[in-house]
Structures are given as structure tokens and as C-alpha cells.
Deep mutational scan, measured.
Amino acid sequence: RLIESLSQMLSMGFSDEGGWLTRLLQTKNYDIGAALDTIQ
């Protein structure tokens, strides 16, 4: 599930440099909407 969510976020133009996006998705239970809300 992480790989699916991460690949979708990467395709939106986000980077996972340093693993920050992986950690964010894990804390949000791989919910892309919740991750995007946090980023904004």
C-alpha cells in the first residue's frame, strides 16, 4: 500500500528526498488526501 500511495504522490510531482514523504504517508495510514492536507 505504501508503494502505491508513494508512486501516486511522486507522479503528482512530489519528491521523497530524505524519505520525508514516506514517513508522512505512514503517519497518515497511506491516505493521500490526508497527506496533501498536511502539506498545505
Rank of each mutant, 00 (worst) to 15 (best):
S5R: 06
G33E: 14
G18A: 08
G19F: 08
Q26A: 10
I3L: 14
G19H: 06
S15L: 09
L24W: 06
I39A: 03
K28R: 09
I39T: 04
Q8K: 14
D37P: 02
M9T: 01
M12Q: 06
L2Q: 05
S11F: 07
L2N: 04
I32T: 05
R23S: 07
Y30V: 04
S11M: 13
G18Q: 08
S7M: 14
S5E: 04
L2Y: 10
D31E: 07
W20L: 04
N29R: 08
T38W: 15
L25F: 04
Q40V: 12
L10K: 10
T38A: 15
Q40D: 08
A35V: 15
S11H: 11
L24R: 01
G18V: 07
A34G: 06
I3K: 14
G33P: 10
G19P: 02
T38N: 08
S5W: 13
Q26R: 14
L6E: 00
N29G: 11
M9L: 13
S15Y: 09
L21R: 00
L6V: 06
K28S: 11
A34I: 08
L21M: 06
S5I: 13
Q8T: 12
A34T: 05
E17S: 10
D37A: 15
L21E: 01
G18D: 10
S11W: 07
D37H: 13
A34E: 09
L25H: 00
I32Y: 04
M9I: 05
D31N: 09
A34H: 05
F14T: 02
L21K: 01
L2I: 07
I3W: 15
L25S: 00
D37Y: 11
T38D: 12
L24S: 00
T22I: 07
K28A: 11
L36S: 01
I32K: 04
T38R: 06
S5Q: 07
L25Q: 00
A35L: 08
R23P: 00
S15T: 15
F14R: 00
L24H: 02
L6K: 01
G33L: 14
Q26W: 09
W20Q: 02
S15F: 08
M12S: 02
E4T: 10
R23M: 09
D37T: 11
L21F: 06
Q26P: 00
L6W: 05
L10I: 13
M12R: 07
G13Q: 05
D16Q: 05
S7W: 12
L36M: 09
L10H: 06
D16S: 02
A35H: 04
D31H: 07
R1A: 11
I39D: 02
W20Y: 07
I32L: 07
S5N: 04
T38M: 13
I3E: 15
D16F: 05
F14P: 02
S7T: 14
Q26H: 13
N29K: 09
S5M: 11
Q40T: 12
Q40A: 12
D37F: 11
M12D: 01
S11T: 10
L2M: 07
G18T: 08
G33R: 10
I39H: 03
F14D: 02
E4S: 12
E17T: 12
M9S: 00
A34L: 12
L25P: 00
A35M: 05
A34D: 08
E17Q: 10
G13S: 04
K28M: 14
D16K: 03
W20R: 04
D31F: 06
D16A: 06
L25A: 00
L36P: 02
D31R: 02
Q40W: 12
I3N: 12
I32P: 03
G18N: 11
D16H: 06
K28Y: 13
E17A: 10
E17N: 09
L24D: 00
A34Y: 06
T27A: 15
G18C: 14
Y30T: 03
S7Q: 13
R23G: 03
L21G: 00
Q8H: 11
L24A: 01
D31S: 09
A35N: 00
D37Q: 15
T38V: 14
Y30L: 07
S7R: 15
S15K: 09
D16I: 06
M9D: 00
A34P: 03
G13H: 05
M9Y: 03
Q8L: 15
E17Y: 11
Q8S: 08
G13C: 11
I3Y: 14
L21T: 00
A35Y: 04
G19N: 06
L24P: 00
Y30M: 06
K28W: 12
G19W: 06
N29H: 09
L2W: 07
E4F: 09
L2E: 07
I32Q: 03
G18R: 07
G19C: 12
G33N: 14
D31K: 02
T27I: 15
D31Q: 05
T27P: 02
E4V: 11
L36N: 02
G18K: 06
S7A: 14
W20D: 02
S7I: 12
F14W: 09
N29M: 09
Q40R: 15
G19A: 05
L6R: 03
R1E: 10
G13P: 01
G13N: 04
L2K: 05
L21W: 03
R23A: 10
T27C: 15
T22Q: 06
E4K: 11
Y30F: 12
T38Q: 13
T27D: 14
M9R: 01
E4G: 07
L21I: 05
L6H: 01
Y30N: 07
L21H: 01
S15D: 15
E4L: 12
S7F: 13
S7K: 15
S11R: 12
N29F: 10
R1K: 13
L6Y: 03
G13A: 04
G18L: 08
L24N: 00
D37I: 14
L25D: 01
Q40S: 12
S11V: 10
I3Q: 15
Q40E: 10
I39S: 02
R23L: 10
D37K: 14
Q8R: 13
Q26E: 12
L21Q: 00
L10N: 05
M9G: 00
M12V: 03
E4W: 11
G33Q: 15
L10V: 09
N29P: 04
M9F: 07
T22D: 01
T22F: 04
E4Y: 09
D16T: 03
A34N: 07
L10Q: 08
L6Q: 01
R23T: 09
Q26M: 14
M9P: 00
L2D: 06
L24M: 05
T27Y: 13
L25W: 04
R23N: 09
R23Q: 10
I3A: 15
G33F: 13
A35I: 11
I32E: 03
T22L: 07
S11N: 12
L25K: 01
T27E: 15
E4P: 07
F14L: 06
A34K: 10
L24V: 05
E4A: 13
L36A: 04
A35W: 08
Q8A: 13
L36G: 03
G19S: 05
G19D: 05
A35T: 12
N29L: 09
G33H: 13
S11E: 12
G13M: 09
Q8N: 08
I3T: 11
E17F: 11
S11I: 11
G19E: 06
Q8D: 06
R1D: 10
R1Y: 10
G18F: 09
S15P: 02
E4Q: 12
M9Q: 00
M12H: 05
R1Q: 11
I39R: 02
M9H: 01
I39L: 12
R23Y: 08
L21V: 05
T38G: 06
Q26Y: 09
T38S: 15
G18S: 09
D31T: 05
D16P: 02
L36T: 03
L36R: 03
D31Y: 06
L10T: 07
S11D: 10
E17M: 11
G13Y: 09
I39Y: 05
S15Q: 10
K28V: 15
Q8I: 15
Q26S: 09
M9W: 06
I3G: 11
I3P: 09
R23C: 12
L25N: 01
T27G: 11
F14A: 02
M12E: 03
M12Y: 07
G19M: 05
